[in-house]
Design a protein around this nucleic acid. Sequence first.
RNA 1: CGGGGUGUGGCGCAGCCCGGUAGCGCGCUUGCUUUGGGAGCAAGAUGUCGAGAGUUCGAAUCCCUCCACCCCGACCA
Length: 571
Amino acid sequence: MRASQFFIATLKEAPSDAEIVSHKLMLRAGLIRRLAGGIYTWMPMGLRVLRKVENIVREEMNRAGAVELLMPAVQPFELWEESGRGPKYGPELLRFKDRHQRDFVIGPTHEEVITDVVRRDVKSYRQLPRHFYQIQTKFRDEIRPRFGVMRGREFLMKDGYSFHTSYADLEREYRNMYDTYSRIFTRLSLQFRAVAADTGAIGGTGSHEFHVLADSGEDAIAFCPGSDYAANVELAEAVAPARVDAGVTATMEKKATPGKTKCEDVAAFLGLPLTQTVKAIAVMAEKEGGSEFVLLLLRGDHDLNEIKAQKVVGAFRFARDEEIVEALGCKAGYIGAVGFSGRVVADRSVAVMNDCVCGANEEGYHLTGVNFGRDLPQPETVADIRNVVEGDASPDGKGPLELCRGIEVGHIFQLRTKYAEALKCTFLDEQGKDQVMEMGCYGIGVSRIVGAAIEQGHDERGIIFPASIAPFAVAVVPMNYAKSEAVRAAAAALHAELLAAGIDAILDDRDERPGSMFADWELIGIPHRVVVGERGLKEGKLEYKGRRDTEATMVAVGDMAAFLKQKLCGA
RNA sequence: CGGGGUGUGGCGCAGCCCGGUAGCGCGCUUGCUUUGGGAGCAAGAUGUCGAGAGUUCGAAUCCCUCCACCCCGACCA
């Protein structure tokens, strides 16, 4: 490819509406252009990257035994009514009517369609298992599209669906996909982690998310460096700490703490560690015929995990000020469980505390030296209701947890029979009996991967693409191309030699000034650069520089192609 | 949807408070010079100042309505 015949659309300055690095760099490098909120054109340079990601995904899916097909983007709404998911998906589902006033949606996912295909064409256990996948454009009318291609409304996704005669076989395929995904992200040279996940709206039981580790990630992940344990913070279990019975040493005392409503302030004011304070969170739990006032107790340095708490007390909302005053006779900020006779749910870490500090249920006062079983009854419920924090014990007992942020680029689910049942997707078993199929589904955000790779690979000059997905592997950059015949000839010869060797090389024949050519290729993130200049040619040499290198190295003209081939294989 | 912010040539911005000639840098076009880190000189082109309504002799600027976009929360690959 010659640069003059391609299209290079680099920008010196990033449009001001881009916030995170990958978005800015993708715009500056001319990979994408925005058409509307969350909707982007993939420019020629960006499309090359997208296609490379896509092909790696395709190769590995094929290798894993899945078969590719392509389903329509437009789906009849009836299918969504049949699965019962229409109302649940809500406004994220882009709906419209055709000229006959029939309802359609632009597919945000394809469980319904694939299940419809399979229920029509697969009738016997002999045809199972089957795994179909596609790489296709999805549309989700996100509430808040952002970060460019990371959370677009229209995006490219690989979605695969597997069908089985038994749960055991689904589990087998699930493990197969777990391995396949790991292979894909490894080939993409991404730093990633598979994390146990909540099953969310799609439903089902077993589920793992694959996260690319990056500080700009939207998800918080807890992981154990000493093992392969990793989980979304919302889901990671905070294990019960060992009971440290240093025992009860203090007597309960009331201390004036004027204006100190936060645990941090109270601890600092009293000169006690934050870990000795207990915060009480007042909620109204739903109950038949009304709601119940419940106190949730957490250690001062911990945060409530609403999902976990909901599993314990049922659906709830935070109590209003007047409800708190009515129940405890005091406003929020000074509340505690001492003297409270209603329902109390304590976090596991609170249950093992001694001599703690809590609100006195009197404005401007806290209690110190408070102990369960003496100053107040043991809490009626002890449960895990907090988010894990750095340093917590890993649930697998293999050391302390660390926290990091991640970008979700893949998600695998055991759907079980949820859709197969709703859509009557059945097969005849060996006994000729009708059985509902077990299903799995497996997604990869192909376009999101491009953004995630850039989040992981960039510097002040621009993108640093992994060789596996760079739009071009090598940029051949001639100096004074228009005037120097020797340079032109040498550049053309090298370019031809690289192409013949199957190396994706681009010859920059634009006759730009050297500085702007260098800047462009560094911005775009091409991993290897060869400069062809009269200076080097006089000594029979070309100049090589890797994108991460600080110094260039001189290589004899005749050796350059072999030199690059070796670099590319090594990478 | 709630909270915060921004809309001025292709991109980045100034001008707005205090109404009166639309400006700067980059990019673009042409010519000459230049050619190893985003060139120099000269000449040019490009704006319904987000849209609509209003106040005014006069609106980018003041008032109202709407729209778009971005950031922070719930959703997701």
